[in-house]
């Protein structure tokens, strides 16, 4: 019987505060920058996706995805 491993994003010293909003946002941006630079199936970007998915509320991700589609995402991509 294989144990299911449950993990959240590792602690990141850039975001030492209790409020992890900026951590979530930065990981979201890092994922998309990584995909833009290395392509969808390089396999290197998956870790960033795991991080932001465990840090960010689902509604935020939906909103940002929508904004990227509409070309009005405010972050530095």
């Amino acid at each position: 019987m294989a144990e299911i491993e449950l993990k959240t994003a590792p602690a990141d010293f850039r975001f030492p505060t209790t409020n992890q909003t900026r951590h979530c946002f930065t990981r979201y941006i890092e994922f998309h920058k990584c995909v833009n630079a290395k392509g969808d199936d390089s396999g290197e970007c998956e870790k960033f996706a795991k991080y932001y998915r465990s840090l960010c509320p689902g509604e935020w991700i939906e909103k940002w995805n929508e904004q990227r589609e509409n070309g009005n995402f405010p972050g530095p991509l």
Partner: peptide, 10 residues
């Protein structure tokens, strides 16, 4: 985060 964490905003 609402303005993308950058100044001036995009």
């Amino acid at each position: 985060v609402e303005i993308g964490g950058i100044w001036p905003p995009k």
